[in-house]
Design a protein around this nucleic acid. Structure first.
Lengths: 149, 149
DNA sequence: TCAAGATGGTCTGTTATCAAACGATTGAGT
DNA sequence: ACTCAATCGTTTGATAACAGACCATCTTGA
């Protein structure tokens, strides 16, 4: 039988089109997260919302979605989920009755702590091939790319 | 009126969870591509298939999808599109009648050349914030992360 | 030769995401 | 006071991608 040909065409593509490589890595991350169960990248959006609420206090859905780069219409579902789980409260802002005032609850803080505890392991798995220095470089480069505001 | 608060919470997230930053960058790329019309990231998959066919010759859909990290079931649609456009031929492999023999046509080569010509500008726009050295670093880091075969 | 498993391509259902439109509310200008 | 545009949250429709099942074909091993 014809042995499986190893083409290794992709590395060349990475050099020529890093943008596509970025997309591939990001789907790779999603898969890795799914393998590890929840609280990593599956539910990453929920995770981020809780994290932000702890760090900056009560927010409107709009603020959350702008700051976290999550679409407004997606944020609706996330807020639904978190509220249903009892992780956030969601009251109308009395000063602006269009907006909600989303805030994290005690249960939400507990859940966040639990989720956070599994993050280091996850990152280690995803970026296993990278040295600490390379991870720092990557982080800085990504921050620069995202500085589009 | 209360001035729009700039929270800048996201940079902190980039430091703590580069995996999420990667995902955000990749959606950012998709958006940028859409703004610029086609032949960049919109249709990136089609582009990649043509590019690979030129470089490695006729392939089965399976080989294309493995090498390019595109799901088999997605590859079906891509091959359909390319064939319909006259950019590839698609005949059964006589040695293995399960598999197709996908090959690029003259029209496909022309289309690829045209698409390639707009890539440098696109990459420049997406990675505008990065120096040449940083782009090299990013490319190398991505290649390393993807070295999961 | 024949049965069992692997492989190539396809199709269906599910999920995540975005764009666009909508009602409700707010703010600005007149 | 009144109108008009902007904003907040929501819903709907569209698209991309993946998982899983499916059939046809090939390969392996008895």
């Amino acid at each position: 039988m014809p042995t499986k040909t190893r083409l290794n065409f992709f590395p060349r593509l990475v050099m020529e089109r890093p943008d596509i490589a970025l997309c591939r890595v990001s789907t790779l991350i999603t898969r890795a997260a799914e393998l590890q169960g929840h609280a990593n990248n599956v539910g990453a959006n929920h995770h981020l919302v809780l994290k932000m609420l702890v760090n900056v206090g009560p927010c409107s859905q709009q603020t959350l979605s702008e700051e976290l780069r999550i679409d407004r219409s997606v944020m609706v579902g996330i807020a639904d989920d978190l509220q249903k789980a009892g992780y956030v409260s969601r009251e109308r802002n009395p000063d602006d009755r269009r907006a909600y005032q989303v805030d994290i609850t005690g249960a939400g803080k507990t859940a966040l702590l639990h989720a956070e505890s599994s993050v280091p392991k996850f990152l280690n798995d995803v970026f296993a091939a990278l040295t600490a220095a390379e991870r720092d470089q990557l982080t800085k480069i990504l921050a620069k790319v995202l500085e589009i505001d």
